[in-house]
Simulated assay, not measured.
Amino acid sequence: MAVTGQEDAAAGFDPLRPKLMRVAYRMLGSVADAEDVLQEAFIRWMGADRAAVREPEAFLRRTVTRLCLDQLKSARRRRETYVGPWLPDPVVEEEEEEDVTLPLMLALERLSPLERAAFLLHDVFGLAFEEVATTIKRDPAACRQLAARARTHVREARPRFRVERERGLELAKAFFDASRSGDMKALGAMLATDVSVHSDGGGKRPAAIRPIIGYDAVMKVHEYLAGLFRKNGSKLVRAGFVNGLPGFVTLEADGELQTTALEIEDGKVAAIYVVRNPDKLRHLH
């Protein structure tokens, strides 16, 4: 009977898993934490009176969102003691994600958990404020205010210029070739004057403890790194879109993976996001 109940629960849960994962990951910025939330949601789904649930998707989305709100409290405490810049876990896909790119996810970090939930559920996933209100246990008017405040904070993080898919991948490949070969002239031609580098090692692999800002500083760092790459090697594993931005996955000399994502504005690389923390890369193996 228990096996039958589990199979019945899975039959209703599994088709919704990708949608629920999108909600959880965009709320938390962590693949592992999102998977934990989905596991807990499934356990609660197994224990629910499923015959009485009229809309399983809405029920499970509410469950996942509320679990994420609880999770965000402990996540914020962990990030207060995080070593160096914190970046969300990299999700690498063949196609560009248009709803939530990496800069927007970083902007979401500055919101309160309720603002984040209201913005994502309404502005990204298209839920009516009545459904948002039921999910986060606030009235619709309060949810409208939460989403409006969130919108104000994240407006600047919305991409102003869409990069065509093929052009984005071309720029990522050219950036990889120039940075690894030491072609500083080609690399410099790609960078915006106010370019920045954000590298997340989490204290577990070497990475800059603070963002590197400005063309000269970024060029100096890449000139140094190019020498290491030529000496020790850095192998391209795949190109794609890393959290919605053109980028690539590499295998570095220490045997660990690394992701690089490029924020492009007006045809120039405006920001470079590098994830080196091995805890955030396990799912890519």
Rank of each mutant, 00 (worst) to 15 (best):
V91M: 06
L114F: 07
V163G: 03
A174T: 08
E166V: 01
L127I: 00
P140I: 03
F161H: 15
R167F: 13
M190Y: 06
D177F: 10
F119P: 04
F161P: 02
D99L: 13
A150D: 12
E96P: 12
S179G: 05
A117I: 05
E164S: 03
R155A: 15
H153P: 03
F119N: 07
E166D: 04
R162W: 10
R165Q: 00
A192H: 09
S196H: 02
E170G: 07
A172P: 11
L108N: 11
E164D: 10
T193P: 09
R151P: 01
H198M: 12
E115D: 09
D183L: 02
V197W: 06
T135Y: 14
L146Y: 15
P113I: 03
K185M: 06
L121N: 00
I136V: 09
T101H: 08
D89E: 14
E115S: 04
H122R: 02
E109H: 02
L187M: 11
L191S: 11
L146G: 14
L191V: 09
E96I: 10
R138C: 12
E95S: 13
A142M: 06
T135D: 15
V91K: 06
L187D: 12
F175G: 03
A189V: 02
R167I: 07
R151T: 15
A178T: 06
E156G: 15
D123S: 04
A142R: 13
A133P: 08
E131C: 01
G201F: 08
A189K: 00
R155Q: 15
R162P: 01
F161W: 13
L108W: 07
R151E: 14
A174F: 08
L120K: 02
L121D: 05
R144S: 07
A117S: 05
I136K: 05
F119L: 08
G201M: 09
T152K: 14
R162V: 03
E164G: 07
A141S: 13
R160W: 12
R158H: 12
A178S: 12
A192V: 00
V91S: 05
V163M: 01
A147E: 06
G126E: 11
T152P: 02
R165L: 00
A150R: 05
L114C: 00
G188N: 04
R158C: 03
E98P: 07
G201Y: 11
R116V: 08
E131M: 08
